[in-house]
């Protein structure tokens, strides 16, 4: 015998990412209490996050105490590249996960040890889509754009660039060779994310690195 079950609508109105957002808030409060300035580096794979990070650690050595959390899909190659600059490095292998989440960062931070740190740099998984919806508790989200990727990336991936407070143009030493239109890139960034601070540099030649390092040092003094 079949009969119609009584059906009812239950109103929910909840954010799907509420758990991550809550965890990110806790991370942010913890970092603020300890006086740590936190960066979340996002970009597509191969745009130079690890190269920028290693040059950054090299220059910060002896100037301020930095720690690094690196997210990678499967290997610890990036973490290997970053060791040897006097900064603690913890690797999160996401096993195919396309982005980092706030709870992964909290666990990694515990492993890293936050005592005495002034700067925490989180290198997210190389991906232009997924990391944009996951707050990790950072102070500043830094989107990298390498010259070979082309100047219209910010218009193609507005979600990521609009959620970033800093944009770093990397591999500027290749700009001419890959016919990168710098003015068009600056214009696109200014239109898509007008409040973002923009840096242009080359980790390889050191061009523009001083301004970037000064920015980090000043952010910490604040």
């Amino acid at each position: 015998m079949s009969h119609q079950e009584p059906r009812k609508i239950i109103s929910i109105e909840r954010e799907v990412l509420e758990k991550n957002d809550r965890m990110a808030r806790m991370n942010r409060e913890d970092y603020a209490r300890r006086g740590i300035f936190v960066l979340n580096l996002v970009s597509s794979p191969g745009s130079g996050k690890t190269a920028l990070l290693s040059r950054t650690l090299e220059r910060l050595q002896g100037r301020l105490r930095a720690g690094v959390i690196v997210g990678d899909l499967a290997t610890d190659n990036d973490a290997q590249r970053l060791r040897g600059f006097g900064a603690p490095v913890v690797q999160i292998t996401t096993d195919g996960y396309c982005h980092l989440e706030a709870n992964m960062v909290a666990r990694a931070a515990e492993e890293l040890g936050l005592d005495g740190l002034q700067l925490l740099i989180i290198e997210n998984v190389g991906n232009l889509v997924c990391p944009s919806s996951h707050d990790l508790g950072e102070n500043v989200r830094v989107a990298l754009l390498s010259t070979p990727e082309g100047e219209d990336k910010p218009a193609k991936y507005p979600t990521l660039y609009k959620s970033s407070q800093v944009v770093v143009l990397t591999k500027m030493d290749l700009a001419e060779a890959v016919e990168f239109d710098r003015d068009a890139a600056r214009r696109t960034i200014a239109e898509v994310t007008p409040d973002a601070r923009v840096f242009e540099l080359s980790s390889k030649t050191g061009l523009g690195m001083d301004a970037w390092i000064d920015y980090l040092v000043q952010s910490i003094v604040k």
Binding site: P6, R7, I9, I10, I12, E13, R14, E15
Partner: peptide
């Protein structure tokens, strides 16, 4: 920027 569960329909 929303990503929300609005409501559900259930059998009692």
């Amino acid at each position: 920027r929303e990503l929300q569960v609005v409501d559900i329909e259930v059998e009692q």
